[in-house]
Amino acid sequence: MSPNMNATYKRVVTFLWTILWASVALHSPSLAQTSHGTDVAVVVNSDTPVADLSLSEVRKVMLGERQYWSSKLPVVLLIRAPAARERDVVLRVIYQMSEAQFKQYWVAKIFRAEAASPPRIVYSNDMQYELLTALPGAIAFVDSRNIRPGVKVLRVDGHLPGEKDYPLR
């Protein structure tokens, strides 16, 4: 084989390997979620006396370590049912847990007498908005494309959904 043929052969092999790895990377669900996912907004009942939380404060709320917005207003946690994208984002970014770890966490939390009940499961956006408007102190996570009137969208780490450094996506 001539030197020219050898160089062509190397380029072809490199090209094929590049395609192979690119295809593997594109099929990776985590990367796909990051590149194609929209922002998930943190929304609360409009009477809730909070407008801006850091990500670690949102985590503290969702972990049940902060249970009151004020002395008279308890936090009511709402979370979408499994398989909803909003739930995946909450588990991945806020809880940093798998579905199994999340379930175990709340069993343990109640068993330790640190909380009386786990987050309430909501099955659709309609139901989520109903509860957000009906329950004072409710907090939920909504796809930022589906934000409706009547609720308050919180800044997280100083950013609103759609802004560059917004952490929940």
């Binding site: 139901m127 408007t133 409706r148 009137p149």
Partner: peptide, 28 residues
């Protein structure tokens, strides 16, 4: 559809069908 920061001040959502509303209220 409001901008996110404006959502608080926006009016209530559009009405649903009667049976859907009843169902949703029961779930709530």
């Amino acid at each position: 559809a409001p901008k996110p920061e404006m959502a608080e001040a926006a009016p209530a959502p559009a009405p649903m069908h009667q049976h859907e509303q009843t169902e949703s209220q029961a779930t709530t």
